[in-house]
Each structure stands twice: as structure tokens, then as C-alpha cells.
Nucleic acid binder design. Sequence first.
DNA 1: ACGGCCGGGACTTCCCGTTGGT
DNA 2: ACCAACGGGAAGTCCCGGCCGT
Lengths: 194, 194, 194, 194
Amino acid sequence: MRYEKGRKDSSRIKILEVASERFRNDGIAASGLATIMSDAGLTNGAFYPHFASKAELVRESIATALETQFEQIAEALAAGGPELAISTYLSEAHRDNPAKGCASAALLSEVARQPPETRQVYTDHFMSQMRQVAATLPHIKDPEGVALSVFATLIGTLQLARAVEGKELSARILAAGKDAARRLIQPNYDGAAS
Amino acid sequence: MRYEKGRKDSSRIKILEVASERFRNDGIAASGLATIMSDAGLTNGAFYPHFASKAELVRESIATALETQFEQIAEALAAGGPELAISTYLSEAHRDNPAKGCASAALLSEVARQPPETRQVYTDHFMSQMRQVAATLPHIKDPEGVALSVFATLIGTLQLARAVEGKELSARILAAGKDAARRLIQPNYDGAAS
Amino acid sequence: MRYEKGRKDSSRIKILEVASERFRNDGIAASGLATIMSDAGLTNGAFYPHFASKAELVRESIATALETQFEQIAEALAAGGPELAISTYLSEAHRDNPAKGCASAALLSEVARQPPETRQVYTDHFMSQMRQVAATLPHIKDPEGVALSVFATLIGTLQLARAVEGKELSARILAAGKDAARRLIQPNYDGAAS
Amino acid sequence: MRYEKGRKDSSRIKILEVASERFRNDGIAASGLATIMSDAGLTNGAFYPHFASKAELVRESIATALETQFEQIAEALAAGGPELAISTYLSEAHRDNPAKGCASAALLSEVARQPPETRQVYTDHFMSQMRQVAATLPHIKDPEGVALSVFATLIGTLQLARAVEGKELSARILAAGKDAARRLIQPNYDGAAS
DNA sequence: ACGGCCGGGACTTCCCGTTGGT
DNA sequence: ACCAACGGGAAGTCCCGGCCGT
């Protein structure tokens, strides 16, 4: 192997960058390789030396997006704890910029229809994020359960806020989501209370 | 009423039935008209006498699915209140049968990318469902806010449970979502508390 | 067959027009379908409903070009006899505009490498042109032999005039070719004289 | 001299040999460097130490082919004069072996589309050949004009004989070309007579 | 000199939404 | 209502010219 595997491959990185944004913005099925490659400053034919198929690009794009998000969550948690992470996630800025936002909110229903390999990649990275958040809830009985439900609430809220027509309603949804998420991480909440 | 052409054409009804299931199962973009028409026992050319475009079919399919769901929610609420509605929604049966399940969970991220007319149709029907649920929470200060957040949690949870790889994890997600939703509708919860 | 075969198909005609010019200008192998379709105001995907393959397009483009040329030769012969046809063929205007000129001069060496079907199409149309010219040489012993050699001389001359570098030399070649062609059709020439 | 790097590298000579045959056989655009190098018993990467680009290889291959042909013409003229040169050129052997035959007949229409440097190389060598033949026609008024037209006739005839489908027709073309070329070099022919 | 890598681009197959002739 | 065809466009395979690490 002439070019060692870890070799800097700026084209590959550029393709992944463009693709992960394009997928989040337009959906996976609706994003063509030609458009992605063109946006990356390349042509169709240069794709396959980098990725074996579109499915592989999808997997790696999802991984890339979720890894980036992992770091953003870490920063928000460090700077202001779960409260800040929640309000950042459910901000109007995030709602209005899906291309650079949460891949789960943008792609979750489409991920459910992907082949198992893709869903496994998603699962692994999602679980990392979940555990990352759970680690900040040591005072709660079932931190992972709570973290799962908080993620579900955040993702569902952001999707709803993006889907509905009407700025005011969208803002109400974001506010309701923020309240709910905060309540879920309150110390006296016991995930097994019911 | 809603159908401007007001036809009770059985072909039209059949097409809508098939389409609303196909869209929920495979996504909107990934569902071709040819397949839908074929499943409806018709051919390609019979589509356009009934609908002006795929976009119109999408709008009406979403409306159809959400109306059906409205009635299902009504039944569950009547039979067992919000508790039953939640556990029915987050059941494994619902997770494993998206074609006949909640259109929001199946299509929400794709709805966000549809033209305004489609999003308006979605919004109207979603709001009906939300108010329907809010009406069962008279003891709560901000019933609509809570209903919004419960919907967000349910939708996000179901999507997550469908997207992840691994039955066990999927079950954990459903359980966590159920707990969270139940907690959110507890009487002492005040959506505007924070 | 819904659309009868002789149906006006403006797209097909447009593609053939563009392709026959492009092939003559750039060569067959060097002309891509995408460029041809784009010049015809269409996209890649619209090609295959019209032609089964590039090879079929090549065949029909050659036929189209040679048919058009047949009519042009007929006009020149009618207006000024073989003399005019020769001087028109070996004009600087023809030399400088291969896209609308003689397909033989532009493509002959490439035709020799085409599959038999293509060469047959070429042969048929070339023979029509040859006989058309032979018919104007009734006073010559072997009109078809002379016509063949005149075509060879004209084609070779035009190709040489296009290939060499230098306007002056190119003009000398055209002049020499005209003289030779005229001499070949002189009445006292007997193709079997040697 | 002509090779600025002046190398007598045997690999370089082998590459030129193979390339000049391959170009004549398959055309310039249709001949890939990988195939040429492989046929020369080398690999892809060994090309660029010898030639700066494919265009340079094309130029030198054309030069090589035309120089070899110059010598062959010299031999034929010495052995049997123009008559023998013509009948050798328009033989079935030559028609059926383009790889080792006349580069003009094989590549002329493609040469016309090459960059000026390439066309200049072609022009220089073609003119050498033309003058070589003109020198054997001292009894003719305009020997260079006649030589030009004879070359045009020979080249056009050989291309036609290769392009048409049908052995018999091809043979007729060769015969017609031979007759025409012989007539053109008859002593009483005056290139400027018309 | 080797041989794989790189970006470019061609050809082809397939399917989409839509139209229109029957 | 049928169904073929249209234009659009995507995915994928292949090969090209050229480059570079070894």
C-alpha cells in the first residue's frame, strides 16, 4: 500500500464535510453524489476511489456529524452544564440551520430505513453521546434512562419545530421542549417512578 | 369539505390508503408513484385523474394518516386515558409496524423539507391531535405546552427505538420514553415552571 | 406502438443534428454523449429513449450527414456541373468548417475502425453519392471508377488541407486537388488506360 | 538534432515503436498510454521519464512513422519508380495492415484536430515525402503540385478502401485509385493547365 | 522502473414524475 | 383507465492522463 491508510486526504475530508451537511439539509435519499462532489469541487468520477458506495459515504457522514456534535455537547456541558446544552440544542439558531446541526434530528426517520451497518454506526455514536450526557447526571437514579428520554425529547422537539408552519407555534414548541427536558433532569426524578 | 372535488371515488380512496402506508414505510422521496399505483391495483396513468401531482398526494396522505390516528388516540384515551395512549404509542407493535403507525414519527424530518402547503396541512392536523390530548389534562397548568412536549417525547422515542440496532437497546429506549411521558403529565407539573 | 415510427420527434432530430456536427468537428471517440445532449438542450438521461447506444447514434449521424451532403452535391451539380461541385468541395469555406462539411473527410479514418454495421451504413450512403456523381459523367468509359477516384482525391485533399500547418501550403494543396480532380473527369480519360 | 534530449534509450525507442503502431491501428484518442506501455513491456510509471506528455509522444510517434515511411518510399522509387510506389501503397497488404502502414492514411483526420505543434511536425515530414516524390517527376511542369495531388489521391483511396464494407468494393476502390494516381503522373499532365 | 493513487469524465442502466394517445 | 414514452437525473463501472512514493 503506497499511500498509508492514515494519509492526509484532503479530498476525502472535503467530501465528508460537504456530504454530512447536504444529507442533513436535504435528506439522504434526496442528495445525489454528483451534487455532493460538485460542491466539494470535484467530479463524479473522483468519488469511488474514496468510498466504495453511497452507503459507505452515508455511514461515514453520519459518524462524522455525530463526532462533531459530541465535541459541541462536551463544550456546552463544560461551559454551562445540561441546562446550557438543552437551551443551545433547542435554540432558534439550531432549528434554522439543520445542515450544521444535529444529525439525529435531521435524519432519524431515514436512519431507521438504512441497512443494519448504517444503523449500527448510528447506534454506536448515539450511545456515546447518551453516555456522555448521563455522566453529568450522577445524582439521578437511572442516568442512562433519563439521558435516553432527554435525547428523545430534544430530537422530537427540534423536528416538530422545524416541521410546523408558523414561527410562533415553532417557538412554543421549542419552549415546551426546553421545559420538559429540564424537568426530566431534575434530581428527584426517578426513571422507574411509575 | 376538505376534498375540494369531493369525490367518493373508491379508486381515490384506495390510492390514498396505499400511499399513506407506503410513505410511512419507505419515506416520501423513496416512494414512487408507480409502486403506489401498482399496489393499489391500478396503473401509472390512472394517477393524474385523481391527483394533480405527487405533492398533492403527499398532502392528502398525511391528512388521511393523521385523521385515522386522531380516532385511534380518541379510542385509547376513552379506554384508558393518557397512560394507555402512551403505552400503546410506545409499544413494540407500533415500533415494528411503521406503515400503519404514526405519520409524525415516520415522516417528521421529511415533512420539514416539504413545501409550505404540505407543512400547513401537517400543522393543522398535528394541532388537532395536540389539543385532543391537552383536553385530557385539565388539572395541569399549561395543558397545551405539556401536550406539545409529550408528543415530542413520544415521536422522538419511537424514532430512536426504530433507528437503533439491537432489540434490547430499543426496548430500553421505549421504556425510558414511557417513563418520561408519564412524568410529564403528572398533575404537579407546570410547563412554565422554570 | 403508441407513437408511430414516423412521428415528428423534434428531440431526436435535434440530437442527430448536434451529434453529426459534433462528430465531424471533434471526432467520434472524442465526443461525449453528455456534451452532445447538453448542446441539444437535454440531459444525459434523455438519450437512451431515443437511441439504443452511442454506436446507433454514430450510425444515424453519419447517415444524416451524408444524406444532407447528397442534396448539396445535387444542387451544385445542377447549378454548375462537376466543376462547381469540385470547387465548392475544395473551397476554403469547406476546409474551415468541418462541423457542417463532408463527413467522409472528417471521419473516414475513424469509420474504418467502427463495427461492421456502421461501416455498412457509411458504405451505402457513400455509394449513393458516388453513383450520383458517376451519372454526370456519361461520356467517360468507366464513370464509377472515375467517380470513386475523384471522391478519394477530394477527400484526401480536404483532409490534407486541414491537417497541415500554414495557410499558404493549405491553399496550394486545395489548388492541386482541384486540378487533379478536374483532370480526372476529362472526357478522354479512360479508367483502364494504364 | 530533433530529439532535444538526444537519448538512445532502448526503452524510449521501444515505446515509440509500439505507440506509432498503436496510434495507426486504433487512432490517437482511442489509444491509452497504459496499453502502449504494457505492449512495450513496461508499466505506466515508466512513461514520464521518457516523454513529458501524451502530446509529445504523439508528435514523436508521427515523426517516427513518417521517417520510416520515407525510407520505404525511397526503396520503392529506387526499385520501380513511381509506378511501383503507387501499387505498393494501394496494395491489399497495405490496406489490411494499418499499424505498420502510412500514418497519413491512418491519422490524417485526427491530425487536423491536434495542437499546432503536432500539425507542424506532421507538415514538416509530409513535405519531405512530397518533395521526395516530386524529385522523381522532373518531366512534369509542376512536380510539387502533382505530388501533392497524388498523395491526396493515395491517402483518400486507402482510407476509403479501409472504411467501406465489402472486399469487392474495396478492391474496386484500390484499382480506381491506382489508375487515377498513374494518370496524374503522366508526363503530359500539367498541374496548372486548367 | 514499478505500480497504485488521483481527479476527470464517459457510457450505461434504472427509476422518477409527468404527459398524452388509445 | 391503460400504458408507452418523455425528459430528468442518479448510481455505478470503467478507463484515461498524469503523479508520486518506493
